Amino acid sequence: MKRKVASLLMVMVLALGMVACTSSGGESSTTSEETTDKADASASTEKKEDINVYWIGKTLNNPWWISVSDFAQQEADALGVNLTIAIPQEEVDLEKQVAMIETAIEKNADAIVISAASSDGVVPAIKKAREQGIKIVNFDTRISDKSVIDAFVGGDDEAGAYKAGKYICEQLGGEGEVAIITGLMAQSTGVDRHAGFMRACEEYTGIKVVAEQSAEWSSDKAADVTTNILTANPNVKAIFACNDQMAVGMVNAAKSAGKSADDLVLVGFDGILDAVDLVLAGDLDAFVSLPNLDEGAMGVKLASALVMNSEYVYDREIIYDCTLVTDGYIDGLTDQTIYEFAAERFPLRGVTENGY
């Protein structure tokens, strides 16, 4: 009886084994047509193993540009993208920036992320890169010919400068003489910030813009310009510097001229660590922040998306808000207090050199 039971169990095991083999074979077998379909599907989703992006900024002399390049690198590391960062020493060095574009072409870059040293001046080199099949992401400062770029990301400079002008006019009660220290007018940022400030001032009949002069984004030049403005216009009550590097020079020159915080309303634009320190010290009344976190990360994201997905189209500009930052909250004017801003952008202020 035991032998019969054992034999029966053996037969059942063998039968189950045959069924299992038949089932497994059925699942793994494919027709030639199915194989072709799978191969096509694999090919359509095949991704480039390495994405090589050249990130070209404007100047090493402004800490805002250092920060935005740091955030771009952080995003590239997170995405696994090979990022080459190239930044001229001087903001006005168009020739150096063009050479960097040429290098990106020679190195067969997949994408270039660039802020233009000259809105018109970079166009020929960018056209050449585009003809080589390189994706072009323009950020912060516009390239004038939109046909040569694939996407743009930046802050709303005109609206931000309008906020600065509005703040100044309100602080003066809608009356008084004001001045503006402009940046490079060959760059869209210089043009837009000037336009936004002037638009705000025009809304107040008692406000008179008595001086406007370029300091070319330079702190040292802004100090000289501020001295000239205060000497020629002793009744000036407020000055807007179109970037924070110039705001630093403006504050220093105002102090040297014997002006206190009660004498002048001083406002900058960008949101660098020096500006944070000046506001906290009571030497700078306010600044407009430029979205370095957003611009740094999104430029790399757009470049990666364009390389990996050739059908993507970005017809619209991607624009981030520029916030007005003040020491204390002012309803209707302040977007962020200095403490909120410092926590967001410089959480390690006083601990690390860069504050982040």
Rank of each mutant, 00 (worst) to 15 (best):
D327P: 02
C322G: 07
I330H: 09
E317Q: 12
D277F: 04
L280I: 10
I272A: 12
T326P: 07
S289D: 11
A305Y: 08
G299Q: 03
G282N: 00
T326H: 05
D274H: 07
F269T: 08
L290Y: 14
I330D: 06
G271P: 06
Y312S: 13
Y312N: 13
L306Y: 00
E317V: 04
L306P: 00
D263N: 07
Y320A: 04
E317F: 12
D263V: 08
E311Y: 10
L264M: 15
V288M: 09
A281G: 03
T334I: 04
D327Q: 07
M298Q: 14
G268E: 06
C322L: 05
I330F: 07
L333M: 11
S289A: 15
V300M: 03
Q336V: 04
M308A: 14
V288N: 13
V279S: 02
D335S: 15
E311T: 14
V279E: 05
G332Y: 06
D294N: 15
L306A: 01
V265H: 09
D321K: 15
N292T: 10
D294R: 14
D335T: 11
L333E: 08
E295Y: 05
I272W: 09
I319C: 01
I272N: 12
V267F: 11
D263M: 08
L293M: 09
G271T: 02
S304G: 08
E311C: 02
V279G: 01
P291Y: 11
I330S: 08
D327S: 11
A303R: 03
N309W: 06
T326V: 02
D270L: 04
D335N: 15
Q336G: 03
V267I: 11
Y314G: 02
T334D: 11
G268T: 06
L324G: 15
A286W: 08
L280C: 07
S310Y: 02
A303K: 01
V276M: 08
D274P: 01
I319P: 00
G282E: 01
A281T: 03
A297L: 03
Y314Q: 09
D331L: 06
G332L: 04
L264I: 13
D335V: 12
V307D: 00
D277H: 10
S304E: 15
D331G: 09
D270R: 09
L273W: 06
R316W: 01
D263F: 06
K301P: 04
D285H: 14
P291M: 12
V276I: 13
Y312Q: 11
F269Y: 15
L293G: 07
Y329N: 08
L306K: 00
L333C: 12
K301Y: 05
P291I: 11
C322R: 10
D263Q: 07
V279A: 01
T323S: 11
L278A: 08
L264R: 08
D274W: 05
V279C: 03
G332D: 04
C322T: 10
G268W: 05
